[in-house]
C-alpha cells in the first residue's frame, strides 16, 4: 500500500531525485530512493545523532541522557548474559544491541504521521534475519568445528535419515518465521494506520491503534532480539 505522505520522499522529489511509485524502483538511483531505504538512513542518523548528543561528555555522576543509556544498555547486557553466557555476550553484544535499537526505533517511527517504518518492508527484515541466521551457524562452526553437524543428526544414529531433513527444514524455518513475523506485524500496523487515517483521520480513529502500535513495536523488537539470543545460545552449546 502506498503511504499517504512521506516527507523524506517529498523532500527528495523536490531535490529532483527519482522516487519510485511502486514498491520497488527500476534504476539504481530509484532503488536507493525507495522509502524504506531513505527511512533506514533516517533511523541510522537519528540513533547516531541522539547518541552523540546525550553521550558527548560522559561523567561519573550521570545526567539525564547518560542515565537513560546506562539503564538501557545495562539491562540489555544483563539479559544477554543470562541467556547466552558471558563469552558470547562479550563478542556479540554490539551487534545484537544495535539490532535491538534499530528495530525498536524503526518500528516506533512509523507511528508518527509522515514517517514510515523501514521494518515494514520484507527487504529490511530479511536482511536482518539473514545476518542473524548466518551468524548463528558461524558461532556453531567456531565452537564445535565439524562436530557442529551433530546438532542436525538427532539423538540416535539409526534415525539420522529421518532426523537430518527434519532438522534442516526446521532450521530454515527459523529464517522464514523470524523475518516474516517482524515484517507482517509492522506492515499490518502501518497499513491499518494508513487506512484509518484516510477513512476517519479527522475523528481520531487511529488513536487506539497507535496505542496498540507502541505495544506491538516494542514487543516485536523484544521478540526478535530474544530469539536471536536464544539461537546464538543454542548453536553455542553442546548437541543433545
Amino acid at each position: 500500500m502506498e503511504h499517504p505522505i512521506l516527507f523524506i520522499s517529498i523532500i527528495l522529489e523536490k531535490l529532483g531525485l527519482p522516487i519510485p511509485h511502486g514498491p520497488i524502483g527500476n534504476t539504481l538511483l530509484e532503488k536507493l530512493c525507495e522509502p524504506y531505504m531513505t527511512y533506514t538512513w533516517f533511523v541510522m542518523i537519528f540513533l547516531v545523532v541522539v547518541g552523540k548528543l546525550t553521550l558527548s561528555n560522559i561523567e561519573m555522576i550521570p545526567g539525564k541522557g547518560q542515565n537513560f543509556w546506562e539503564l538501557l544498555i545495562g539491562g540489555m547486557y544483563d539479559f544477554f548474559n543470562d541467556n547466552m553466557g558471558s563469552e558470547l555476550t562479550e563478542k556479540l553484544f554490539p551487534m545484537i544491541a544495535t539490532f535491538a535499537l534499530y528495530i525498536a526505533v524503526g518500528n516506533l517511527i512509523g507511528l508518527i504521521p509522515g514517517f514510515m517504518s523501514p521494518t515494514s518492508s520484507i527487504n529490511t527484515t530479511l536482511a536482518l534475519t539473514i545476518i542473524v541466521w548466518i551468524t548463528h551457524h558461524i558461532i556453531g562452526l567456531r565452537a564445535h568445528g565439524l562436530g557442529y553437524i551433530k546438532h542436525f543428526l538427532g539423538p540416535i544414529p539409526v534415525l539420522i535419515p529421518l532426523m537430518l531433513p527434519i532438522e534442516l527444514i526446521s532450521n530454515v524455518a527459523r529464517l522464514l518465521s523470524l523475518s516474516i513475523r517482524l515484517f507482517g506485524n509492522i506492515m499490518a500496523k502501518e497499513t491499518l494506520l494508513g487506512i484509518l487515517f484516510m477513512l476517519a483521520g479527522a475523528y481520531f480513529a487511529p488513536l487506539p491503534i497507535m496505542l496498540l502500535g507502541v505495544l506491538v513495536s516494542l514487543v516485536q523488537a523484544m521478540v526478535f532480539v530474544l530469539l536471536t539470543v536464544v539461537y546464538f545460545g543454542q548453536s553455542n552449546e553442546h548437541a543433545h
Binding site: I169, S170, V172, A173, R174, L176, S177, L178, I180, R181, V219, M222, V223, L226, L227
Partner: peptide, 22 residues
C-alpha cells in the same frame, strides 16, 4: 508477559513456515 510472548508467540508461525518449506 514479554517473556511469554517472546517464547511462545512464534509457535504458530514457525509451525506453518516449517510445513511450507517442506
Amino acid at each position: 508477559m514479554i517473556d511469554l510472548l517472546g517464547n511462545y508467540g512464534h509457535i504458530g508461525f514457525t509451525f506453518v513456515a516449517a510445513i511450507f518449506i517442506g
